[in-house]
Design a protein around this nucleic acid. Sequence first.
RNA 1: GCCCUCAUAGCUCAGUCGGUAGAGCACACCCUUGGUAAGGGUGGGGUCAUGGGUUCAAAUCCCAUUGAGGGCUCCA
Length: 631
Amino acid sequence: MARQIGPIWVEPRELRLPPQTGGSRLFCWEANMKPMEKYEESDLYRIRHSAAHVMAQAVMERFPGQSKIAIGPPIEDGFYYDFDLPRPLTPEDLEAIERRMREIIAEDLPFTRQAISADEARRLFADQPYKLELIDGLEQGGLDEYGEPLDEKPEISTYTHGPFADLCRGPHIERSGQINPAAVKLMNVAGAYWRGDEKRPMLQRIYGTAWKTAKELEEHLARLEEAKKRDHRKLGAELDIFVFDEEVGPGLPLWLPNGGILIEELERLAKEMELRHGYDRVRTPHLSKEALFVHSGHLPYYAESMYPPMELEGVRYYVKPMNCPMHHKIFAARPRSYRDLPLRLAEYGTCYRFEKSGELFGLMRVRSMQMNDAHIYCSEEQFESEFMAVIGLYHEYFRIFGIEKYVMRLSTHHKRGLGKKYVDDERLWLKTEDMVRQAMQRGGVPFVEAADEAAFYGPKIDVEIWSATGREFSLATNQVDFAQPARFELKFTNAQGQEETPLCIHRAPLSTHERMVGFLIEHYAGAFPVWLAPLQAIVIPIADRHLEYGRRTAERLVAAGVRAQVDEGSERMNAKIRAAQLKKIPYMLVVGDRESQAGTAALRLRSGEDQGAVPVDEFIARLRREIEARA
RNA sequence: GCCCUCAUAGCUCAGUCGGUAGAGCACACCCUUGGUAAGGGUGGGGUCAUGGGUUCAAAUCCCAUUGAGGGCUCCA
């Protein structure tokens, strides 16, 4: 049942569809706030779902009697199927499986659905342990194929084509011949835990893609190629933004001068913005005694992600994985009155988290990070306006960067108990989640909800984005904390002279420098707007006799606060232009005889546009305006 | 952390059946002094990721370690 949240239509079932991809969430946002297309009811969904079954048949035939099959759903742009096989699959296996799939498609086998009882299903899949587990889940617990709870007890059904029968709720195409053999391709094999649980067996997952036409497949593959060119890891190296060094360690980026400029420009932006929004800037140490993290409650929840303690003079110290406890101590350092609230403490705090080695990913997931952090201490009455002011801040930032493709996600606690992941206070969970939900709805801000994604201390709104590789990341975050202020006994005196515990909002609209820069590299494909561009203008003298004028021109630019250089190399002008293009420098100032006599420069944009001779003074004034406007 | 794959010059890569290394780009120097995406020449640069093993002989085969990539899990 679709329902409207703010101006966006959201269908809860759809959001849960492939938990592995986040694809459907992207889908609904790109629908531009119109009711979302029902992927589950589309032809492509059926084609992909059926292609997964055809693939499973081919795999089972290749390992007769030795293939245990798990699940094989459609996902964004394709499908997968998980198998437990006697040996790892090779590229040759994939080719053979793909060939066999085409044969099965050519056989034009009908897909037939049959509703059966749980016992019949158990007999049918007697030698398929994963299917038996699914049947139990469907019958008893009302769990779907991902192990998520279902509202109602579903009917158990199978879909059969030729010799292959699968436990499946469908839907499918009518005949295997409806899959276009020229529009199917197996992509890669990967490991995946059964039911996404790292304690369960590791299965082999084959990813495939399927489209209606060969042309669509081709276009999809071309899109993947294009995306690879945007990959921040590739562009980051080409544009001299950052490097990783084996001796420094994984997940510990070294920022090159160009990266340093990006970081400083972002910090400058954050400082201006936070000053305007009433934040106070503070600075706190990189490490503290263990006691602080015991007090905050982080240690039991977070120890695995922290670098191990170092012990000196009998005291254990931890490098901080987050800044909040330090900010809480600043709040606690003085008696606070309601007149001090809201108190907004901001810092680009440097944190270290020991992310598991396999989780590292370029700049998007690192072990050392500088976080655009702030903690807002406020009363319950102030909560909504403070929380929504942060959301407003997001929007301001996103307008500056032209970020349009994102989803705001309300992350809540798990409905089936708090367990060890969450602070144990169901009432406060429900209360704060409702506060956030209502604030967002009243503010007319579209969002989707995700259970079991909250921070341990409270619900949050995360802004989800996608890297060029299609992986999903939280960029900004805006979190409610109902637990830590009480743990730290933070108090303020209210207007009635009584002591009250404030709420705390944790927020990071610009994420970490690492993830933000990684995201921006891909967002702009390396062609940063002028205000961010590490080198804003390059002067290109045509011949040596123009070098002097070129240097003077560059000096004037630098004196005006522009990041400019002169290309003194002995290559031809064409080669210099090419080099500047590859570095995506916004402005190229070509100077030769005509320009040095007239005091001008021939202006070329990285778009390729030639604007002809422009007086240097005029160019500087224009560039200054552009930089200041952060256009 | 787990499954799979990979590691040759700063970068992109070649190197057959084991016989101890090569190209283009980049860099340096020289020539060229040019009008909007690569002018020419010469040269420097690699203990073939690291450590073991097999072998008369290892970039090549085997093992381990480190790092990277595709996923899973986890997350700013």
